[in-house]
Nucleic acid binder design. Sequence first.
DNA 1: GCCGAACCGTAACGTACGGTACGGCTGTTG
DNA 2: CAACAGCCGTACCGTACGTTACGGTTCGGC
Lengths: 217, 217
Amino acid sequence: MLLANADIDNSQGLTERQKAVLDAALRLLVEEGDQLTMTAVARRASCSKETLYKWFGDRDGLLTATVQWQASKVRVAPVDGKGLDLASLTASLERFASDWLKVISSDTSIALNRVAVSHAGSGKDNLGAVVLENGRFALARRLKPVLEAGRQAGLLDFADAETAFRTFFGLVARDVQIRLLLGDRLELTEATIGGDAVRATQQFLALFGAKTGPQGL
Amino acid sequence: MLLANADIDNSQGLTERQKAVLDAALRLLVEEGDQLTMTAVARRASCSKETLYKWFGDRDGLLTATVQWQASKVRVAPVDGKGLDLASLTASLERFASDWLKVISSDTSIALNRVAVSHAGSGKDNLGAVVLENGRFALARRLKPVLEAGRQAGLLDFADAETAFRTFFGLVARDVQIRLLLGDRLELTEATIGGDAVRATQQFLALFGAKTGPQGL
DNA sequence: GCCGAACCGTAACGTACGGTACGGCTGTTG
DNA sequence: CAACAGCCGTACCGTACGTTACGGTTCGGC
């Protein structure tokens, strides 16, 4: 919860030059995997290693700053919970599903999650927590109000928003993320993602849609 | 598909001493994270580094052998698809769900998946493919016959077994694996797993159960 | 124009670790 | 017993990389 606004603060305290350096590090991370050496970052960013150490302390600091910098960039437009009919709710859910699939299948997300998973394997769990906070938990924070609004409007029926969210998460992501992280080729075209978003939303509504009137499949 | 029987061959060509060494490596992997140095393995297994290199070639060979050795150990009892009524199908699905949750939440699985994800980030994707083949794809191979039998018996209704499997996978695993890999504490007690298995199975049946007669929730 | 701060490029240092070599011990074979 | 193979323990080598140090350059302030 503290991390939620921490990432906002971070993007403020950075100079343009520092942001450019972090962008270079991010690009390098995506391209080269975790062979992210300080020398490579310095060369790519056209800065000296001395500067890297002065700004970010050590390698972990640079890694953390890079992840948080990326996290601060992907601020998804919040969905307005104004239209409370079934059509708009469906559209919102499909939008969430589609956005999420695009995120987790992006090269950036895969690279970041890989380095965070590796990091969590070693002692310090900083990166894992940051990625989790800006990924899965941020998604929950944005989606839950929509679910609650849907319940308020009599469109959804669930006891616990957290449980409902996790089911939606599972229906959307399925095995995609773990397969991508493990190196499985898995071409997710725009069309595939769109279809999956619709399917997941329909399944979710079938499970949690309010039983008012006949439920058309 | 070739990897499917490769892991069977491997457990045969190993001497008892070699298995003991791999067990030591596996324990070290679980305890120490990816700080798996050749020296540490040699010390833990009370063998010389020279022997490690003679038997496994290089560090990657040792890692791969360790992962395959673990994979060859977790051969889950196949479910018999004989009882074709709803009760036994439900029991089978719950059993699969429960087993899978236990696997992905085990320290061993977490450690192995972490190292495989890291490995996939670096060039070679060997470990990722091995883990995927013995994890997610092995599960699909075992579960699909059950689903097909359920459809044959008129209990399930789906067009594509792969799609149905992936939905089941999503309903069972949800966000558990990624959270654990990223270092999130997530106590999965026996009771929690059992409850989740029942819930996931009920949700799956609600989505894919044949529409014969009124569907009781 | 001069000073100091910030920064670039690069050289240098220390260490960790993958990989190799070798001496010594043990069990086996003839 | 002698010869030998297999293996343990350890010392050693080369390299990659994190980290530090330093000379040279740019630039804002006086």
